[in-house]
């Protein structure tokens, strides 16, 4: 609409339980209908298809859970963030429930390209896996500088020199826990499962069998020099009053 007021509401949500198996488009589709059900006054684009004005952060791999996914929704009325959050929570499947909402600058950069850093937590179970072996295997993979893998029928390359920031391994009973920090850019991102797959082909994990893998995205941020900027950073969030 030509003269409508526009307010950009930033929403953080999780992805949990069996809904971890939703693909990115399925998450978008589900949240789109959740927003419509919330009856919040969302803005509609003027294009041929008249779509809702909403932008999402980067795709989460199918099978991965998350505590920190984001979307920016443009509203035409300044609804109190707590009220908007409550209405969205009530209209969204609980496994995708929003956990925080605040208004940000209308012209802030788009989330997808802006959020360049992710922290991951992975739990590995199986035979022959130890924290030391996993650590050594990832180090061996990192040493090669890149992972060549197939996505469907397409050959892909993950450039570890750009995308792999750091990792730490710890033993917790029979479970090996991996904390992983990655970086994405226009050239691509590193999916934890790809790194872990490659690690199982490396010598330190020879003969080990992975029985179960649970991956969770713990955090997303924008990398600004040495500083990580939170999507709800005080310099970004604006007050309605």
């Amino acid at each position: 609409m030509a003269n409508e007021q526009q307010y950009r509401l930033r929403v953080r949500y999780g992805k949990d339980g069996r809904l971890a198996y939703l693909g990115h488009l399925e998450v978008l589709h589900t949240i789109d209908s959740s927003i419509r059900r919330s009856r919040l006054p969302f803005s509609v684009g003027n294009g041929f298809a008249r779509r809702m004005r909403v932008q999402f952060s980067q795709a989460l791999p199918v099978g991965a859970s998350s505590k920190a996914e984001y979307y920016d929704l443009v509203l035409t009325e300044p609804i109190e963030p707590e009220v908007a959050l409550e209405r969205l929570r009530a209209s969204t499947p609980s496994a995708l429930a929003p956990t925080k909402a605040a208004y940000v600058e209308r012209r802030a950069p788009a989330l997808e390209a802006w959020l360049t850093r992710s922290d991951w937590h992975a739990e590995l179970e199986g035979t022959g896996i130890t924290a030391e072996a996993l650590d050594a295997a990832i180090a061996a993979v990192a040493e090669t500088g890149a992972i060549h893998y197939m996505r469907g029928e397409k050959p892909k390359v993950a450039d570890l020199t750009r995308t792999l920031v750091s990792w730490q391994c710890a033993q917790s009973g029979d479970v090996v826990e991996l904390s992983l920090q990655t970086r994405s850019s226009n050239e691509g991102a590193l999916r934890p499962a790809i790194l872990i797959d490659a690690a199982f082909s490396a010598a330190p994990l020879a003969g080990a069998q992975l029985a179960a893998l649970r991956v969770t995205r713990e955090m997303q941020a924008h990398e600004e020099g040495a500083r990580l900027v939170n999507p709800f950073d005080e310099n970004l969030v604006i007050s309605l009053t």
Partner: peptide, 23 residues
């Protein structure tokens, strides 16, 4: 028996077909 089905979800195309609990 969802626990029996769950380990298979990561190995198939369109696992959303089998998730249930839709809105």
């Amino acid at each position: 028996r969802f626990r029996d089905l769950e380990p298979l979800l990561g190995k198939v195309s369109h696992p959303a077909r089998y998730l249930n609990h839709e809105w």
